[in-house]
């Protein structure tokens, strides 16, 4: 479809992801939406960002859309091809050295992770639904997400559905703020890192400074507080929610024509 003023929820989500990335940041991406978002950020919003992937490929600049984090499309045109262990050591040392951005306001490393379930404190499940030993649905498991959630600030991406946003998740693959303020320190996790926001197809959820509980910070065009609550399996505060601007048609054109022309991750709507 060539009408770039009409966009899908997924395209909006990719744009919102891209707009969270700041110039100079080191960005841990996976495949799928975060990669589309990072590619867009690199072209438009934050050309000086450094995408890295958990297989150990640093400062990636893929020309074509990779399908896996170990894809040769990531491996070509990157700065360094490290084995995975170096990547893990790097992310741990980013925390140990408390490496901050140039302004000194926040860590320079930010990571995107996904999952199947999330609770009000940003703990994420990507392992299994139901009993762990005899699950109803089994997923891939952690991959690199657990250590990322341990050492880095994260942006979590998820489809906003009642069955996914629930009070108690079946398995904690990637720890968030645990049981609230001070929860990470009590568990023995780095307290000065953790989930910063959840980018969904409805808007952007953040975590309260004091309580670390999720609230709705932004709603995408056309989304109401009722719709956010309807699709959230726990009570969510929408009183602070602002509306998020619609994407520029030029940005939508870029996603469709330049970044993911093969529609590997974002389907273009039919007329």
């Amino acid at each position: 479809m060539s009408d770039y003023t009409k966009y899908t929820n997924k395209e909006m989500q990719a744009v919102a992801i891209a707009q969270q990335i700041k110039d100079g940041q080191i960005v841990i991406v996976g495949t799928g939406l975060p990669l589309i978002g990072a590619s867009l950020a690199k072209r438009v919003f934050a050309p000086g960002c450094h995408p890295i992937v958990e297989s150990g490929l640093m400062d990636c600049s893929p020309i074509e859309v990779p399908r896996s984090v170990g894809d040769d499309r990531f491996m070509a045109h990157c700065a360094v091809q490290w084995p995975n262990i170096r990547f893990i050591g790097f992310e741990a040392n980013e925390w140990l050295n408390d490496n901050l951005n140039e302004e000194g306001t926040e860590p320079r490393l930010i990571a995107f992770i996904g999952g199947a379930q999330i609770d009000p404190y940003g703990n994420v499940n990507s392992t299994s639904i139901g009993d762990y030993h005899h699950p109803i649905t089994r997923f891939t498991g952690s991959g690199g997400a657990n250590a990322i959630a341990t050492f880095a600030n994260t942006v979590i991406m998820m489809q906003h559905e009642k069955r996914r946003f629930i009070d108690k998740i079946d398995y904690v693959t990637s720890p968030g703020w645990m049981d609230g303020a001070g929860g990470r320190e009590r568990a023995g996790l780095p307290g000065n890192r953790g989930p910063q926001m959840v980018v969904t197809d409805l808007g952007i959820m953040k975590f309260d400074e004091q309580t670390k509980r999720m609230y709705c910070a932004y709603m995408f065009p056309g989304v109401t507080p009722e719709k956010v609550q309807e699709n959230t399996g726990f009570e969510i505060d929408c009183s602070r929610a602002e509306s998020y601007p619609a994407p520029d048609p030029e940005i939508i054109r870029m996603i469709r024509e330049e970044i993911d022309p093969g529609q590997a991750f974002i389907k273009v709507p039919k007329d």
């Binding site: 262990i85 893990i88 741990a92 952690s142 657990n146 250590a147 904690v172 990637s174 645990m178 996790l189």
Partner: peptide, 29 residues
């Protein structure tokens, strides 16, 4: 976690007796 398995295999290559890590804390793992 992938990090744990990759480190375990690396530790095996280094001939280490066991391996202390900071991740997996607070998780189902």
């Amino acid at each position: 976690s992938q990090d744990a398995i990759m480190f375990m295999l690396h530790a095996s290559s280094l001939g280490l007796p066991f391996l202390p890590v900071r991740f997996m804390i607070g998780s189902g793992m």
